[in-house]
Structure formats: C-alpha cells, structure tokens
C-alpha cells in the first residue's frame, strides 16, 4: 500500500509540490496541472496539502462508469487511463477528500499516481511535510 502522507503542521504553503508535479508530468511549470494542491487559509494562517490517499476502497473507482480508474493490485495505487475517460467527473464528485480535480483547458482528470513510486513532490518538499508510505 503506497501513498503520500501529509504532516499538516510543518507545511509552509510554498507550493513547490504543485509546480514540481506539473513539471514532472509535462515539463512545464503550471500549478494548475499539479496532482497535489495546497489549500490555504491566509486569514487563519493554515496550509493544507491535499493529495490522493490511495484509499483501500476508493469511491472514485466505484463511481467511474468506464473503468478509467482502477486500483493497482500490487501497489495499491489508484491509476487512471486517460483513453477510457469520458470526462464525466463522477470521480471528482465521489472523492471524499476533494483530492481529484478536473483540468478545464486540458480536459483531463488530475490525480496522484505517486510517480510510479518515486514522487517528485516528496523529493522537493522543503520541510518534509510530504513523505511516501510504502
């Protein structure tokens, strides 16, 4: 069971994770493409990284009508097949943690796949807020 664990208390909200994620996936820098997002409450001074928890019984997989989302039996990571996706966004609605997003202009689902086991966000997080649980 692999997933990215978040320690909310140490996050400084710098959004390096969002940018490195977009860069790792598409060689451009664009946080809107990040498969991880920081929810900020600047009034209260809190930062909350939101990323897929790779649930053992994933609601997104249950909700997906086309099989575009499936749970990899070996690693436990929930993976996404773009070719099967109809952009219905049922997964976005189903996720109880709001950790799946739909990217409007790219017309794709954004969901963490832990970079095949070597997640860039974990590597670059300045405060070790993010860690990989294997």
């Amino acid at each position: 069971m692999s997933f990215i664990k978040v320690d909310r208390h140490t996050c400084t909200g710098c959004r390096y994770c969002e940018v490195i994620c977009s860069f790792n996936k598409s060689e451009v820098c664009d946080p809107s493409r990040g498969r991880i997002k920081i929810e900020k409450d600047e009034i209260r001074g809190t930062e909350k990284p939101v990323v897929c928890r790779q649930c053992s019984k994933p609601k997104c997989v249950e909700a997906c009508p086309t099989g575009a989302l499936y749970k990899d039996e070996k690693t436990g990571v929930v993976l996404y097949i773009n070719d099967l996706c109809t952009q219905c966004q049922a997964c976005v609605e189903a996720c109880p943690f709001n950790a799946i997003w739909f990217h409007q202009s790219l017309n794709i689902i954004l969901k963490c796949d832990i970079c095949g086991g070597d997640p860039a966000c974990v590597k670059y997080c300045p405060t070790k807020t993010l860690s990989l649980v294997e």
């Binding site: 710098c14 940018v19 809190t46 930062e47």
Partner: peptide, 13 residues
C-alpha cells in the same frame, strides 16, 4: 509563532 510560512517556490520560508 504558530507556524513557518514560505512564499512561492521558496525553501527558505
């Protein structure tokens, strides 16, 4: 201090 805060893409926070 209640928490450290970084600006965009800043590891110095």
């Amino acid at each position: 201090t209640t928490g450290l805060k970084g600006c965009f893409a800043c590891p110095i926070h």
